[in-house]
Design a binder for these strands. Sequence first.
DNA 1: TTAACATATGAACATATATTCATATGTTAA
DNA 2: TTAACATATGAATATATGTTCATATGTTAA
Lengths: 102, 102
Amino acid sequence: MTMTSENHIMLLADLFRLLGDTTRLRIVLACLDAPIAVNDIATRLALSSSLVSHHLRLLRAARILKADRQGKQVFYSAADQHISGVLADMLAHIAEPAGEEV
Amino acid sequence: MTMTSENHIMLLADLFRLLGDTTRLRIVLACLDAPIAVNDIATRLALSSSLVSHHLRLLRAARILKADRQGKQVFYSAADQHISGVLADMLAHIAEPAGEEV
DNA sequence: TTAACATATGAACATATATTCATATGTTAA
DNA sequence: TTAACATATGAATATATGTTCATATGTTAA
């Protein structure tokens, strides 16, 4: 952790930046439970499928989500288990009472 | 994880967005080892102290870092242990071989 | 083939934000 | 008090980026 190369820092920042938009974060959360198709994400989150597709492209490029085509539809799901770990840690951070020393 | 309120989503996104900038991320990493003063961060990262201070303000407001004044200097350090957990998980995500099913 | 559906993409625009510069505030020593 | 140092902040600007709209690509059924 102490030694983090500039290369890794850029990759890390890219990942965090992608999760740092509420729309994209909601899309990621929608994909964590089970694989879900683009249109279903759009319906569930009340977004245009164009917008969802734009975001999915970025999330897939960063290997946060992976795509699986089944016929006409493309199902998206978490690329690995680390993202949910990150989200769990961040939720714990939010739950941490302000000003408490740990 | 399944149920994440809109309120929590906004807080989560705020935290990720803050870590999603390379300059701010480097500042956070510089504060993880031990408390460090503003000017020392600026020197170590070759940044202006003005820029560092601007970023520290945001990081402190999000309770990612906490401030401790000692005389003229203000030392910054991690607010709690969750952030380093998040960073460790994200580094693991980066280290994950592409295309591997987990 | 054509038609209908599902997803993806390029351009344009509006908004957000990282950085710089100047200045202000706070702290300690003389 | 003044001077020197350390940190913080406000305004301005340049850049990045989320969203929309139009259109393209890919897939299946008739």
